Simulated assay, not measured.
Amino acid sequence: MEEVVEKYAVYLRDLKGASENTILSYQRDLRHFICFLKDSGVEKIQDVTRTNITAYLLNLQKKGRSTSTISRNIASIRSFFQFLQKTNVIKEDLTQDLESPKIEKKLPEILSVQEVDLLLRQPNEKDLKGIRDKAMLEVLYATGIRVSELICLEESDVNLTLEYIKCADPNHSRERIIPLGASAVKALKLYLEKVRFAMIRDPNESALFVNCNGKPMTRQGFWKIIKVYSKKANINKEITPHMLRHSFAAHLVANGADLQSVQEMLGHSDISTTQIYAQLNRNKLKEVYSKAHPRA
């Protein structure tokens, strides 16, 4: 059965164009599945039954595997059996009736307004690096863009006169126009006037944010920056760039912004993704009520 899994991996790579991470994930899931089959006395893929597949999924549940892990295994097995049927290894796809367990959406962790303010006050605005870092953090929180979008911004994407940035979504062709708040405008203006030109080596460099070598800032570079300042601020949370995106959206909704506007700024294709921030706000109201009402 291992040989069939290897052929499936080639199929994913060459014909489906799957990433190496996806292929490795599928292979890992299928190897565990095959080990279970062999322990159950099944030696050929043609001898697998629906009962075998169901027993494997029940075994994952007994082992305490998470709902998301079981769902991923179902996706791996289902894709594998579709390949087997397509290549005539088996006559019938045994996974057609498999249902993935419902995954309970976890509410994202956010920073409070006070914690964001504390984080943004950490960069030292008396040196070039601190001014750049302050500008990056302010833009990230002011706009809610992804870190991948932040590092792809070009100098021409910034309009300080009208106080907005243009952001090209890496996963979609459309461009978003996102307002900048006064703090972000001030930080960006200082960075552009005092720092960027001093940092770049190539006058034709178009990237808005660059590292100390004058090259475009990388994801890894920015992750290191945010880790340094979160530690310096002594905030007892695992702060990530995406947490600032979540905080941006949650704070807007909490202060009365409508979901459709927040959806537009975040670049969500489906408003159901944005509705999670309304849920966060409802939970906060319940918490406040429980603490404050004398008969709660």
Rank of each mutant, 00 (worst) to 15 (best):
E2K: 13
E3Y: 09
L12G: 04
R13E: 15
D14N: 11
D14P: 00
S19R: 05
E20C: 02
N21I: 04
I23D: 10
I23N: 09
S25Q: 04
R28N: 15
R31V: 10
F33K: 03
I34M: 07
D47R: 07
T49Y: 02
T51F: 11
N52M: 05
T54I: 14
A55V: 04
S66L: 05
I77Y: 01
F80W: 09
L84K: 00
I90V: 15
D97C: 00
E99L: 14
K105V: 12
P108Q: 12
L111W: 00
S112K: 02
E115F: 01
L118Q: 13
R121H: 13
Q122C: 12
D127I: 14
L128H: 08
A135D: 03
E138Q: 13
E138K: 12
Y141T: 04
T143P: 07
S148E: 12
E149S: 06
I151L: 06
C152F: 10
L153P: 02
T161M: 07
K166W: 10
H172G: 05
S173V: 11
L180Y: 08
G181E: 05
A182V: 14
V185W: 02
K186S: 14
K194R: 15
V195N: 02
R196K: 09
R196T: 11
R201Q: 15
N204Y: 14
E205M: 12
S206R: 15
V210E: 07
F222E: 04
I235A: 00
N236Q: 13
F248T: 00
A250P: 04
H251A: 10
G256M: 01
V262N: 03
V262Q: 06
E264K: 14
M265T: 07
G267Q: 09
T274A: 04
L280K: 01
L280Y: 04
N283S: 13
K284M: 12
K284W: 00
A296Y: 12
